[in-house]
Structure formats: C-alpha cells, structure tokens
Design a protein around this nucleic acid. Sequence first.
DNA 1: AGAGTGCAGCAACTT
DNA 2: GCTGCACTCT
Length: 744
Amino acid sequence: MSIYDTLNEQQREAVFHTEGPLLILAGAGSGKTRVLTHRIAYLMEEKGVNPWNIFAITFTNKAAGEMRERVDKLVSFGSESVWVSTFHSACVRILRRHIDRLGYENNFTIYDGDDQKTLMKAICKKLNIDTKAYKETALLSAISSAKDQMLTPDAYEEQAEGNYGKKNIARVYREYESQLRGSNALDFDDLLLKTVQLFETQPDVLEYYQERFRYIMVDEYQDTNTVQFRFISLLAARYQNLCVVGDDDQSIYKFRGANIRNILNFEEEFQDARVIKLEQNYRSTGNILDAANAVIRNNRGRKDKTLWTDNGEGERILYRQFYNAYEEAEFIAEDIQSQVRQGMLYQDSAVLYRTNAQSRLFEEKFVASNIPYKIVGGINFYARREIKDLLAYLKTIDNGRDDLAVRRIINVPKRGIGLTTINRVQESADARGIGFYGALQGTDLIPNIGRAAAKLDSFVALIEYFKSRADQESISELMEEILEMTAYIETLEAEDEEGAEARIQNIDELLSKIVSYEEACEEAGEKPGLSGFLEEVALVADIDSLDENQDYVVLMTLHSAKGLEFPHVYLAGLEDGLFPSSMSTDNPEDLEEERRLCYVGITRAQKRLTVSCASQRMIRGEIRFNPVSRFLKEIPSELVETEKKLFEKEQRSAPAPSAKEQARRAFHQQPFQSSSIAKGAKQFAVTKEKGLDYTVGDRVSHVKFGQGTVKVITEGGRDYEVTVEFDTAGVRKMFAGFAKLKKL
DNA sequence: AGAGTGCAGCAACTT
DNA sequence: GCTGCACTCT
C-alpha cells in the first residue's frame, strides 16, 4: 500500500508523468492540490529528485503554505527545500539578489496600488495631463497591460505611431517609469517584468535558475498572464519539465491580464505536451455540480469537459428572492444561526458576493445577531492610513530614495510643512536632478524656502537619527521609537476622537506583526531586516490570514473565494446589473468571464448552496431595481428549491445537537471578536494588561532607556500611559503595552 | 503659509 | 457612503 493508491487513474497518471511538459485540466474540486503534492512527493521519494530542484508556484501565500504542509506530511524529509511560492514572492527573491545588474539598488521598494495612484496623480500634474480625458486609473491600467505585454516605454511609443491618445499614454508611461527608477521602486507588474528582463539580458543568471528549477509546477495556470508565462517558459526552457494545472472555466482575472490562451494554446507552445483531464469531482453533491455544469455550458470557446461525482444528489439548491438587500442579509444571518443550532459551525458557511461594497449589510446584521465573521478583502490592513504612514517611515529609513514615502510623512504628524514648501523642495530637486530627500538634505540650496528651512532640517535630523538607530536595534524597537519620537499616537488621539481607538488597535497589530516577523526570521536562522519586513508586507494578500481553525463565517468576493471550499455557500446579490455586472453585459467576452465567476461560486459549495437576490438595492445612494440574474435562470428549475417552507420547517423541528456535535462546537467556539472599524477577527493585540505590576514611584527598567522612576500613570482607552523619568534618557511618556517596563 | 471646513464627484474584481 | 479639492480662517 503506497500513498499513490488513494488516487484515481487520471490523478495517478498525472503524478507519474514527471518528464516533459504536462497540462492537467483539473475541473473544480477534482483534487488538483492532491495531485500536485503527490507529484512533488513522487519526484522526491521515487525519482530521487533533489527537493532543491523543485519549484511550485501558487496563487496566494496561503496556498503555498498549505501545499508545503501537505507535502511535509507525505514525505519523510526535505520538504522545506522545495521552493513553494507565488509568482510575486519568487520574483522578489530573485530580484533582491540580482537587480543591481539592471541598475537598481537591491533594497528596492515595492509600490502598491495606492502608491501607484499617488504617483500617477503627481505625474498628471507635472505633465499637464487633463485627468478628465485620461483618468489616473485608466492610465495605470494601460501601463499595467503594457508591462504585461513586456512593452518598454520606447516600444509603446513606437506602437502608438499616429495615435494621439496612445502617444499621450506613452509620455505618461515614460515619466512613470523614470520616477519609479528614481525612487528605486518597483510596482507589482515590474516584479515580473524586471525578472524576465533579468533573465533575458543576463544569461548566467538565467542558467543558474534553469539548473536550479529542473521541475516546475504551476497552480491556477488559467490565471497566468503573458509576462508570467514568459517567466515560466524561460525557466523551463532547458529541462522542459513544466507541469501546469488549471481549469479554463475558472479563469476570472482577465481584467488583470490573465491570458486564457496560455491554457488553450499550451499544446502548441510546448510540443509533445501531455494533456490529462481530471473530471471526477470530490467536493460537491450532484445537484450542485449539475447546476454548475448547466451554467458554464452557456459559454463558448472552452475546453470540453464534464464534471461528474459519485457523492449522490444531495439537497436541492435553495433560492430566495427578497424585497431588498436588508432582508437578504437578515435571512442569511438567521439561516446561519438556525444551521448552527442544528449542529453546524460558523466556519462551515461562507457568504460570497460580486462586490466588496455588499459586505457592509452583512456585517451589520452579523454584528446584530452575534455571528462571528471575518471579511476578506475590502480595505487591506496595510492600506489603512495609519499603517501606511508608519510603513512610510520605515521605507524612508530603509530606502531614502523612495520619494513617495518621504512626501507622505514629511508633514505627518503635522510639522507645519505645507504644500507650498513641499512644491518648492520638489522643484529644486527636479531642477538639480536629485531625489526629494536629497534636496531636503541641503535646504540652504532651495530658493525661497525661508522660515521653512528650519522645519525641514529638523525633519531630516529625525530621519537620520532613525537611520542611525536602524542598524543597532530591532525593527520593533525602531517602530516603538518612531511612535514615541513623533508622538504619532498622541496626535491621533488629539485630532480624531472616534476613529482613534480603532487606529491605535491597528498600530498595535502592526507591532505584533513586526514581532512575529522577527520571531519567524530568528526561527529560520535569518537576521530580520527592514527590507525583508517591508517586502513581506507588500506581498501579503488578505486571504492569507484566513484561519481554518477559527470558528467564523467568512465573507468575501467571488474572486477571493477561488481555490476555497465550504460546506455551505451563500451566493448573494444574483441580480442582472450587479452580477453579471452592468459593465460586462454589452460585451460577450466579459459576460463569459462573469459566468465563469458564477461557476467558481457555485463550485465552492460542498453540501449546500443558497442563492439569493433582492428586487431593489441601494447602489451609490441610489435605489436600483434589478431583474433576477440571467445566471440563475440557467440553472435547471428541478435542481432548485424555492419554497419558503423549507427554511421554516427546519428551524422549527431542529433536533438538539448530538453530544458529539456539542463537543465539536465547544472545542471550536471562540468568543465573538470583531469591531466594525477594525474589520475582521483580530489575531493579535497588545491589550491592556489586567493591571500593571508597578505603580507611581516604583523603579523600572526599559530595554532601551535603562532604569528610571515612574512618575505618572494615566488610564487611556486601551492601555496605560506611563510617564517615566529615566536616569540617563530623561522624561519619557509611553504606552505600557509597548514599553514592556520591568519592575525592579 | 498652513490648517480647518464644506461640498462635489465617484465607487468591479486584485498580486 | 467615502475621498479629494476648493474655500476661508488663523
């Protein structure tokens, strides 16, 4: 009996086919992760391949972690040497080593979407671009797709010949590119593009990685874009051991450049590619699968396949139509509670929707009904103002050339440095062809700077002080020092009464994340560095923080739900105009993508699927009346249960949960944890201690400031604020949670 | 020169 | 329902 006996015939075939290109067309729930993990195990255990030579690319960090864990369970040793990572993290790792060959410094900064927007705004201003005619987001997406097509600004301009609009975009692209370079920064697209450029221009580097990665596996292949495909083709060119797993029916990232031709044309690109289809679904019931098949059948231009299951028919799909979205949310909240009374866990349910804005109503109802929940997506933790501010300090300290970061914090907290001054500094920097921070370092050279010079000088002195500290102390100590010296929290409290508490909680969470990063590094025997932390932060997706061991209902968009499964799925807001989105209904290709999205949603469900819509819904403060989604009508009516009675009956005759269920629930249940502002379940927090073990007058010691005497303790909302007179460092005010003072 | 305040316009999906 | 910008006040 071997670990491979549990696989079905096609799965086994895919696992055993190790040499040469292989395309696995894996329908939803057909066990593709099982195949990939077993394949890695097979390579290592049976083929004697060095795990060091195996590279598996996943879509999210979470998927990467899970894959490594599962491989670890299959093989006796060596799984930690397998490279499992996302495209972006893999590229960052490669670029950190070699990007100096392309004229960047190796401690480059990564710009996220917000940073890109800020930068684009400044560029439009500088180039006098009419943002009515060319919206920032449109310009950015044009640049993004240019980068995906691996077009340099020069190539783009050439291509734009005779097209006035495109010429303008080329101008913007060129400026955007030069500003990024000037700031020693890369955007997300650059991570891939620069890696490809590196491979194409540095044969020795390419050869090194080709030798290193002799066996390459790519998950979610249907969502790779052109530059990603180029990346893997280059790597696989030497040994041709490329195994890609995907499902053309689940391609939902066309807007991000996903090229469905990568999957449809794989056999042309890689001659002699073996194609294996996995069509047996192990996840869902027959009814759910039939519904999914019926919907996706309406798409043209797909690889033919039919999913089947021997799981049995299961329950019919429950369909409810509501008067408005409030009632929809209320029903789902009640239904979840009724399911829980019958023995289900909260974590067995997920609510999926088309747009993030829909989460709001669910959140309200869930809070009111005391349902623990976690919202994935929406405003990313790292996109919050206070977090971005503090990270900008770290970025400035780490890479002084990151102009965006410097400009963000130069007057945060307020230092009396206004727009006029900032513009003068920028002009002077531009005139002299140096960076913003560079200009700040010589204020006497800036014309008309006047009284502001002193303020700028003290800002520079502050940053330089932090820089000098950065080598000597840990990131968390540095962060604490930034908080103390800028009085960031105090300022926050002073200016923003309602929001302050949640923001401070977020800062606590950031500190916790820094500490756990440091711990993780030390465990791995690496030195935790500022660049490393900032990079990790730039590449985390919200979905990575989902925790299967916590009992909460998950709320997310259909896009985020890709690759996940839940016993019970609620598909909400099935209305034409919302889903499919009104922006896609006039274009058949876009509509097909929406349909695939619907297919992804349906196939997330294992046992029970509830679909719902509302007759009227508030969108942008306007009441909209949308017809029932066309996708709903594509589900054969015999699979659907529309009767209201079903729900009420179950609720009334709910049997008491079995002893086993009660035990299961007691084990999983955790106290309700969520606040409407600090969205989602908090993982860590520096919370107010039950009390402090020191009082006024006590002698205490601090990691950095040494010994001192406690002068004042005031009780803040979330923490104690302690004033200590240090023997050598003077009087300092600090939060007990951060300061970790020890009584002597 | 900077900071605070009121109003307009805008809002898919994401690494 | 929220963010950016113009306007006015200190």
